[in-house]
Design a protein around this nucleic acid. Sequence first.
DNA 1: CATGAATGAGTATTCATTCAT
DNA 2: CATGAATGAATACTCATTCAT
Lengths: 201, 201, 201, 201
Amino acid sequence: MANATTSNRPSLRHIGGDKREAIMSAALDLFVDRGFFGTTVPEIAEKANVGAGTIYRYFDSKEALVNELYRQEKQRFATNVIENWTPPSGARELFRTLWSKMAKFATQHPKSFVFLELHHHARYLDKASIELEQRMLALFTGTVIAAQARRELKDAPPRLLMALVMGAFVGVVRNCVEMSEPLTAADWQTAEQCMWEAIRA
Amino acid sequence: MANATTSNRPSLRHIGGDKREAIMSAALDLFVDRGFFGTTVPEIAEKANVGAGTIYRYFDSKEALVNELYRQEKQRFATNVIENWTPPSGARELFRTLWSKMAKFATQHPKSFVFLELHHHARYLDKASIELEQRMLALFTGTVIAAQARRELKDAPPRLLMALVMGAFVGVVRNCVEMSEPLTAADWQTAEQCMWEAIRA
Amino acid sequence: MANATTSNRPSLRHIGGDKREAIMSAALDLFVDRGFFGTTVPEIAEKANVGAGTIYRYFDSKEALVNELYRQEKQRFATNVIENWTPPSGARELFRTLWSKMAKFATQHPKSFVFLELHHHARYLDKASIELEQRMLALFTGTVIAAQARRELKDAPPRLLMALVMGAFVGVVRNCVEMSEPLTAADWQTAEQCMWEAIRA
Amino acid sequence: MANATTSNRPSLRHIGGDKREAIMSAALDLFVDRGFFGTTVPEIAEKANVGAGTIYRYFDSKEALVNELYRQEKQRFATNVIENWTPPSGARELFRTLWSKMAKFATQHPKSFVFLELHHHARYLDKASIELEQRMLALFTGTVIAAQARRELKDAPPRLLMALVMGAFVGVVRNCVEMSEPLTAADWQTAEQCMWEAIRA
DNA sequence: CATGAATGAGTATTCATTCAT
DNA sequence: CATGAATGAATACTCATTCAT
């Protein structure tokens, strides 16, 4: 693709990278709809159009594969949601921004989102994966507490508010994945308005 | 063997019932924290204190076991939530009632709740299990539509509202399961109030 | 077999034991003529007339199997050679006794002997197996040194004398295994006489 | 690529020969301490500092590689031991000569010696390799029989005597490989003296 | 009825070999 | 010629299921 500027250099740099991506993409799809244990390595290989052995040139094991996938997707999520993070003055604005960024991400990468949700607390996640998860959590918690201090959010346990909002968000995404029809922008806005009313002071 | 002497005592039939329950209970626990494919039949047997072969006297297969478990728990959930269903006059009251019944169920049987949530759309659920699921869904949908007609709920797609509420509820339950500390009654009430404000007109 | 004294007790005690033995015996044969890595687990299973999975009821892994086999055979060798170990007064007598016991063992269990020889220094032997090996070595070394002190053996490095004798013994056994025809008692005696002359003072 | 400019330099043909040697040398080392099945082709390639595919430019298969290696080493052994073979008048002298040539070979190429020993009767040796082995054996056998006719050696089955001597020799070599400390010239002489006394009439 | 030893189909993983560069 | 990424057949090992006791 955008390699116009390097067109005279054969795509040597890409060797392997393509396969690696194909494998991760196939794994994402399969893990989402069959679960980790429900997915076999040969299935991943077939879906990725590579030999079964090839997977092991890129990943130490099936477990290493989920973990790398988890971190990549979590990172992508974090990047999409938090990039250019200049916390707006008010909580209303902040919430709207976050929600719409999350919505955009979930719309563009619904599988990624569901995957992250499903594997949230799987026992095969390693330390690095779990830490990444917890760092994001801490970031949000801080923001909630600050907003509560300004009397913009209800005075409830931060984790409760976050659980409500994230749960509702996940509920919506799952619902549209299940029905395999994406939400309209209007629906996303409606949902956002609902959840803002759920948590505002 | 010695059952000739006890053939007139019908209560013996229940002895098997005990094992059946032990198996289902063990399976519930294990499925919740290892997943369906992550759980082995011998593990279930050991936790249930029965021989591995015994499981097959009560269930045709591992898959039949999840399905029966799913239906049993879904039924239990339905019974707990809907029993004595005399739809109160107003949506506010109805919502409060439903939420608190669900909260009570989720508090008393957290594993059941998480199990139902996790296996919601698993590919090993058979037709009967899926229908049961959809019947409950239809019931709720009808109620939502009726309330919207009375201008008591926001005018949003019913599935969206239900997804938000159920999602938020699940979010809260999962959160307290993860932290393995039950929510207080006050927290449940707070959450209910939040979500009511999310959906009310 | 010889269970006449316990004939009224069904051979419950033996359940599994038979299979375990069958597996070890099959493994011994195969390891001897194909090596450890050259032998597949299904091959062992087939030769032992058990399912492949059965092997894992008795042994944790293929590696655990070689190690148990090694220890069992080493033990058997030690028992056969050293039992009733009342070191005769003279080295001549001692040597004759040891040689003939080893010959008897090697004649009755040629595969065992070759197996021990082949796996002597394999990298898959665990600590316990190696220690067993070294304890026997130390025993012999001590005896040699004592005999040298009495001027009955040549004054050469004990390890050299032992290597010569054990090497020669192994050479003879291997040779007869290869030609698959057992040595006569006379040949064994001849060989013994040769090696005695090799080491005597 | 740039071989047009060097086409007139024949010595270039040897460059491949270097790789061939590197491969065989690496294979020798690895086969000796991990066995044939315990050694992987990529390992050999890495140790030889060539690409894995390169091995297949020089050898048809891994099996072809062991066989060529076997024949090469056997040949080298034969050459070293038998070259300038002018059978001395007496068996004593002959034995001393053979032993010291073998000792010299084993000292200079301990890996080669152990390799030949280990792979002696491996099932992956092909016909040509086995014949080479048997030709050497026949040569020795003839010499032994002749010496027995002259009453210089004990009157025992020739194969027995050869097995004793070769076994003892191997025992000594293995022992010093295991302890990874070479034998002194004196030790070699001692050993030779011992084994001569073992077989002389 | 209950058991758990036995099974073999199925899974993750390795490795000899090929082939595009 | 040389390479090493890619492959898939083969291997160690697991586990749902059966069945003799």
